[in-house]
Simulated assay, not measured.
Amino acid sequence: MTEPDATLPEDEARHAAKMAKKKAARDRMMDAKTGEKGLIIVHTGPGKGKSSSGFGMIMRCIAHQMPCAVVQFIKGAWDTGERRLLTTHFSDLCQFHSMGEGFTWETQDKARDIAAAEAGWRKAQELIRDPSIRMVLLDEINIAFRYGYLDAAEVLAFLQAEKPPMTHVVLTGRGAPEALVEAADLVTEMTQVKHPFRAGIKAQPGVEF
């Protein structure tokens, strides 16, 4: 057991001893985690932040000089901040493909939406198969599953059979299919506590897009 440092006041010494014990336990735990693998990552749930978190991971890859790619399945018609940033400053490291034409109530054409989603998935397969690309973000693909534009079972089967061992694939959007959640390595569900839209505040640059 770590002894308190007699040169410190009693409360500070107790705190230091507690933190030292916690650090030792944490170090032992980290020493046991030696494996690496490409992950299937799902960001879902009704709360805000699913795409934002995915793009945060893309920026980390860029910072580590890891080639990566984005395929947007729904918001392709939007001029978003992340799209501007990645295509303007980081196109050498991150491919960006906007395949969607907007939310389904904007196009009002299911056949057209299905065709766009299928084109997006074909591009995603091409990117995922390339082992030099370390992360592929499939932004809002869960929405494409929800509306029946893509078959989630087909996508999952492809990931399990053809994803290179060290490639990370991030799938975002509310309502992720249960089979995808079960198969994924990392799943985060965003919960909504409060949102300004309910108070009459529109989507704003820098926050939503």
Score class of each variant (00 low, 15 high):
53 S>Q: 11
140 E>Y: 08
160 Q>L: 14
204 Q>M: 15
56 G>A: 07
166 M>V: 04
130 D>S: 11
33 K>T: 14
4 P>N: 09
82 E>C: 00
94 C>L: 04
173 G>R: 05
6 A>D: 14
7 T>M: 00
54 G>L: 04
51 S>F: 08
8 L>Y: 03
147 Y>I: 12
78 W>D: 01
174 R>K: 03
61 C>S: 06
197 F>N: 04
159 L>A: 00
150 L>Y: 07
82 E>L: 02
62 I>A: 05
8 L>N: 01
192 Q>P: 12
49 G>D: 05
70 V>M: 11
54 G>V: 11
12 E>Y: 09
58 I>G: 13
7 T>R: 13
8 L>C: 05
57 M>R: 10
174 R>H: 07
131 P>I: 05
17 A>I: 04
192 Q>C: 15
62 I>P: 03
176 A>N: 07
112 R>K: 12
187 V>T: 07
5 D>K: 04
8 L>V: 09
134 R>K: 14
163 K>V: 06
57 M>I: 05
145 F>A: 04
153 A>F: 09
144 A>W: 00
46 P>H: 07
104 T>S: 15
47 G>A: 02
37 K>T: 11
35 G>H: 12
14 R>I: 15
165 P>G: 11
10 E>P: 05
130 D>N: 15
102 G>A: 06
205 P>Q: 09
201 I>R: 13
188 T>V: 07
7 T>Y: 06
61 C>Y: 06
132 S>Y: 01
158 F>N: 05
87 T>F: 09
5 D>F: 08
137 L>Q: 01
40 I>W: 01
14 R>A: 15
147 Y>T: 03
136 V>I: 11
72 Q>R: 00
94 C>K: 03
88 T>F: 06
70 V>C: 10
190 M>S: 05
150 L>V: 04
153 A>K: 12
160 Q>D: 13
26 R>I: 05
168 H>T: 04
107 T>K: 00
209 F>S: 13
148 G>D: 10
149 Y>M: 02
49 G>Q: 05
22 K>S: 12
102 G>E: 10
114 I>R: 10
60 R>T: 12
129 R>K: 14
